[in-house]
Nucleic acid binder design. Sequence first.
DNA 1: TCCTGTATTGTTGTATACAAGTATACCCCT
DNA 2: AGGGGTATACTTGTATACAACAATACAGGA
Lengths: 218, 218
Amino acid sequence: MIDYRSVSLANQVFSVIEKNIINEVYAPGEILSESRLSKELGVSRTPIREALGRLEAEKLIASSANGSVVLGITTQDVEDMFMVKRALEPEAFRRAARSMSEGALEKLKSNLEKQEFYAVKKDSEQLKNLDTEFHDLIYEGSGSMILFSILSPNHHKLLKFRKASLEMSDRIEHSYSEHVAIYHALAERNEDLAAALITEHVNNAYENINENIKREEK
Amino acid sequence: MIDYRSVSLANQVFSVIEKNIINEVYAPGEILSESRLSKELGVSRTPIREALGRLEAEKLIASSANGSVVLGITTQDVEDMFMVKRALEPEAFRRAARSMSEGALEKLKSNLEKQEFYAVKKDSEQLKNLDTEFHDLIYEGSGSMILFSILSPNHHKLLKFRKASLEMSDRIEHSYSEHVAIYHALAERNEDLAAALITEHVNNAYENINENIKREEK
DNA sequence: TCCTGTATTGTTGTATACAAGTATACCCCT
DNA sequence: AGGGGTATACTTGTATACAACAATACAGGA
């Protein structure tokens, strides 16, 4: 096995299992045994265990004596994650406006160019990943480890819902233009505007996602 | 080695290293190698690695190719953690007031009795642990996995500062009486009162801790 | 003396071996 | 046929072995 330190098997395994839980490939209630995952993913139990440990810390699974039971993400969890976003993202964006480096702003800009490209093509798969990167850059740019460590996994776990939302409406264009407006507010170091825009962005995303969830539940 | 599943070596190792980082036994910037920790704690690298993985997720350390560098907790982090508390704890306590089980309320009550006992003895070490349990019970009682997974580690990481605060003033009595008031609000299902009281509790704790930090920095 | 190349030591990442416990299925006995 | 006990297979937790890579110290030559 080649030794790609930066993308260790444990990290890859974490991403795969996380994605499978979020997308309910592993359904809530299902029990994941280490040996099963080991066979399934073709790696030994060691990286599996490390990934499961982190997933447990994020409350996506719960370990017991005879396996890890999948907890998954409930609609209540989605509500709660948006509550967290509403409560903390304005402050994070304020700080990013104040202290984000020019380099990070450059990365944001380049990210936006890609967003524009894929928005035209309506490629929600790519847009979903770019959205994750966009937000992570800003969380990191806030300079607060605490905010980053809370908001980044929070945003991550909403991935499936964000993608579904982008697929089902004209949210692609709106989302993109909101991102552009946020970028300009950050670049101009206008923290009041940045806070106001992200609040609106979160509210819009919430409404959109909520509609999708209600539609699905019918 | 006896097989106490519920308190696995990995969990114990996590607690020890976490405590050592919080109390700056391992100073920020210091590099922790797995083999060193393995010798130091008398266990193999396997549980060490699992603990380090979780510590990295909590941003207490950062792993690189040649070891894990200790990040520690800065005074800015303390500010940020209180910001998170102010933003999210009122909502958590509201929900706890609404949905906490009678059993959990019983546990809170018994915890308070112990708090009273140790408050009289001014045993800040025990009080610190009881305070952790008290808050964890309420976070869990909120019924929100999301809030619990954010607020519990957040409160944990403030441990050192909470203890220092309890040692340096008459905060012991005030903290205890605030806890009692919160318990009664929860038991009476008065969510408005619970939210108001925790807000005040957080503000008081913040002022107290902040004074200590300023005093130390001189 | 300084620089360069090599060897040693230390690091992480991964796989595997082993111990201990548990649930389950199956067989035997009543 | 039904119930109980045993054996088996599967689970996690831990330790160790091995591979790949990195840094460093040291020795030798220019």
